[in-house]
Design a protein around this nucleic acid. Structure first.
Length: 558
RNA sequence: GCGCCCAUAGCUCAGUGGAUAGAGCGCCGGACUACGAAUCCGUAGGCCGCCAGUUCGAAUCUGGCUGGGCGCACCA
């Protein structure tokens, strides 16, 4: 609808210029076509006459009038066009044209809302990527929900999307994990050793040690400590990673690729990129360590890639990792990190520019932290002490649908309060049920209708003459907006727009449905019933499509 | 001290440089002899943190200030 109108307005400006009524404009002015807040201002409104005023050296209202005079509306899309206020042009869409939206929804079905804005470009989105040193916690869940939904939204707007999880299965953290487990293992065998404070303290470490002991017995005590720790590390990382994968499945997320940090070392990629940068003097030696000239590429200081003790830093493998991403020829490379990593962004961006890649193709989105509450009170969490609520516990307690929906309901740049009690409530406090209830209600209507002989209703041109109530028109207009919500959500990388739209559509439907005396869907009037069934089943399609983008189920009954 | 993010109704938050800033919760008052009340209807509630600037026009853009969150390793 909006595209059609946009075309008409552009065409009108062109023909006004051709007729000499307006000065040629180069470049053409960017046009904002929006839906006014107030119904009296039309279905769409544009400010284009006002933005052209200065260049045309004429009054906005005069320009607006000229544009309107040159509008050709061959399809009779418009019922009224007017100049209003300081120079807005307000457009009123002809009533019967709105109903074609219903036809489009039914025809496109699961594809309604998709577009080709991404032009088939290849985009890689890396998210979650939690270290296999402990279970996923609530904050990871938010990153997972945001990343997964962004991927779905990009995919719906014509991108070819690859989701990737980067597994930090190398380095000192894994070593620390091994040490932690080995200490617990020895404690289980009666040895009196204390767990050093810098080791992982969580109770899951005890569990891992117990499993290790049960499976392999006491033989680790006979190994040299070095070997025993390595063995523990490998065992623990594998077990934890298995658990993470299970949690990811339980949360309804799937990854196309799992990329191993260890692979970057085994394949020599890390050494190769360090050598290359050294030969170009982008990496230099100082105080026995190797430093990257990140300061020359926008970071506040240079950063160490190889420490004086010969060990590489996390940054070293990250350089090789991002080089690898670029070498895989993606048009866009997107990283989604927890906001606590924001200080790391300039460094990685700097390394990408230093390697000569196009920095514009790389974007980092920082997801703000989650404050976990129960009944309004903060839940004490300390990763160091190993006291935290795992994502699994939250999924088990409040359910996957509610968890995902609530994680998506805030702009990712805002800190999120997640209240476990609120999340469990099946009321208006909890919008997920509000939206899902629409799907269940409509499913039930369709079931009842089928019992009365209504099945697979086809589009009929009469529908525009039957569905004439203001609230019916309002529903249709709302449905017409859905594709733009998805497109805008993708363009701005803002997944929260989808659940907000869902809430709005749900509210409009519930209100319509509730006044059952005024407009019962299935009535004695066969034509009216068919038209309304066509209307509500279109709503159901959009609810299902939107929930599907969020990874939330659309139940037939609740 | 430096950097990133946030500040809108009592609370939690939406809001595309545009015309009269919205929703849910909460408060108060109402609605089912049923296409499921996990719903609906109504009332009240606002210096859009503060100051300046840009603009025909600012909650929205820019600068400064105040308050809050997070981060500033040869850790990951």
């Amino acid at each position: 609808m909006k595209e059609k109108l946009s075309f008409i307005v552009r065409h009108a400006i062109d023909s006004a210029v051709a007729a000499g009524h307006l000065k040629p404009i180069d470049p053409p002015p960017s046009m904002v076509l929006e839906i006014p807040k107030i119904a009296a201002h039309g279905d769409f409104s544009t400010n284009i006459a006002m933005t052209m005023a200065a260049l045309q050296n004429r009054a906005p209202k005069e320009i607006a009038r000229i544009i309107i005079d040159h509008i050709e509306d061959r399809d009779h899309l418009l019922s009224k066009t007017e100049v209003a206020g300081p120079g807005f042009i307000n457009f009123f869409i002809a009533l019967d044209r709105w109903h074609e939206v219903l036809k489009a929804v039914h025809q496109e079905d699961t594809a309604y809302g998709t577009s080709q804005a991404g032009l088939g470009k290849r985009v890689q989105i890396e998210f979650l990527s939690a270290n296999p040193t402990g279970p996923l916690h609530v904050g990871h869940g938010r990153c997972a929900a945001v990343g997964d939904t962004l991927a779905a939204i990009l995919s719906a707007t014509g991108y070819e999307v690859e989701k990737e999880y980067y597994v930090n299965d190398s380095g000192r953290q894994i070593r620390t994990l091994g040490e932690s487990v080995f200490v617990r293992y020895q404690q289980l065998l009666g040895k009196t050793i204390d767990l050093p404070a810098e080791n992982y303290q969580g109770s899951y470490i005890n569990d891992l040690a117990r499993i290790l002991l049960d499976q392999e017995g006491e033989h680790l005590l006979e190994l040299p400590e070095e070997e025993a720790v390595t063995h523990c590390a490998r065992f623990a990382a594998m077990k934890i990673f298995e658990g993470i994968r299970e949690d990811i499945v339980a949360f309804g997320v799937s990854f196309g690729h799992w990329f191993s940090e260890q692979f970057l070392y085994d394949s020599g990629a890390v050494q190769a990129v360090i050598q290359d940068l050294k030969s170009r003097d982008i990496i230099y030696e100082h105080d026995g360590a190797l430093w990257f000239r990140t300061k020359d590429f926008g970071d506040e200081k240079d950063r160490v890639v190889v420490r004086a003790n010969g060990l590489t830093t996390y940054f070293a493998s990250d350089i090789a990792y991002h080089k690898n991403k670029f070498d895989r020829k993606f048009d866009r490379i997107i990283d989604i990190w927890g906001a606590d990593h924001h200080g790391y962004v300039p460094r990685v961006s700097a390394s990408i520019r230093a390697l000569g890649y196009d920095g514009d193709r790389f974007q980092v989105f920082l997801v703000q932290l989650v404050n976990l509450l129960r009944g309004g009170k903060p839940v004490a969490m300390s990763t160091r002490a190993g006291e935290f609520v795992t994502l699994r516990e939250v999924i088990d307690e409040v359910g996957r649908d509610a968890t995902r929906f609530l994680f998506l309901l805030r702009h990712y740049e805002s800190p999120l309060d997640f209240d476990l009690e609120l999340a469990k409530k099946q009321s208006n406090d909890n919008p997920v049920y509000y939206v899902q209830y629409v799907h269940a209600r409509i499913s039930n209507i369709l079931k009842k209708a089928e019992e009365r002989g209504y099945k697979d209703i086809d589009w009929h041109d009469d529908f525009s003459k039957i569905l004439t109530l203001p609230e019916e028109l309002q529903l249709i207009k709302l449905m017409a907006r859905y594709p733009e919500v998805v497109a805008r959500s993708a363009r701005l990388m803002e997944p929260h727009r989808v659940p907000f739209y869902m809430k709005e559509l749900a509210a409009a439907f519930h209100a319509y449905y509730h006044d059952r005396n005024k407009h019962k869907v299935v009535s004695d009037d066969a034509k009216l019933s068919a038209a309304r069934l066509y209307l509500v089943s279109a709503i159901r399609i959009i609810i299902k499509n939107g929930l599907s983008l969020m990874g939330v189920s659309a139940p037939e009954t609740m």
